[in-house]
Amino acid sequence: MRVRIAYSKLEESRYIAHLDLARVFERAMRRAEIPMAYSEGFNPHPKISFGSALAVGVEGEKEYVDVELQQEMDIGEVLGRLQEQLPKGIRLLEGRVLADGSKALMAVLNSASYRVRLAMALPITRVRLQEALDSWLEREHVTYSRYSKKGPTEKDIRPLVKSLTGEIKGEEVIFDLEVEVGSQGGVRPEEVVGSLRELESLPLDMESIHIKRTGIYVSYQGQNLSPFEHDQIQRGRSKQEAR
């Protein structure tokens, strides 16, 4: 039985790295005595797969994981037992049984929304902020340099940003953005905000940045669907085709 679970990853649990998260879930499942299915071979691994990785330190409001179980179980019981064994900050929100042949999360998730909060280094007016956003959005290309072990690489992040808005709340600036997620590598919210600071000279205190992924979706016919909704549609379509 394959189940898809939606969860939030907030507060301290945002520091659990993506690779470690698989182990955290695996061990929690074992403590909860929910029998997982294992891969065949020399080094059997439980069949757990996640959607798009969340960077260390970034919170997630609604993330997804697929788990394969050895036997049929009541989904409510799975969620209840697993929740008790998870670290503080990880809350299970919803779970559904997947049909055979449902596509993996990695294969369908292609869009994400983020909320970024950070302090101003100098006062910024509402007008100034809007000017900066408009000017940034008008650009056709925004090159951003990433530094890796192989040296700096330049990347055009503009095409990956679908929308970008901002507002001022007290001493903080809050940005909402929607970006493409994909196999070609996405864009990090701090890169977008960083380029606003550099290119549009917005005095933002990058050290104070707090990032939350507010959702991750399947962008399908102009709509943002949750992977649950998308799976329903896929299932409906394959039923029709079968007829």
Binding site: E12, Y15, I16, A17, D20, R27, V56, G57, Q85, P87, K88, E207, S208, I209
Partner: peptide, 18 residues
């Protein structure tokens, strides 16, 4: 909390493990 995201392996410093 202000600078934990900037250090390597922040989970070293939290103390809320299972």
């Amino acid at each position: 909390e202000r600078f934990l995201p900037q250090v390597s392996k922040p989970n070293r410093y939290l103390g809320t493990e299972w």
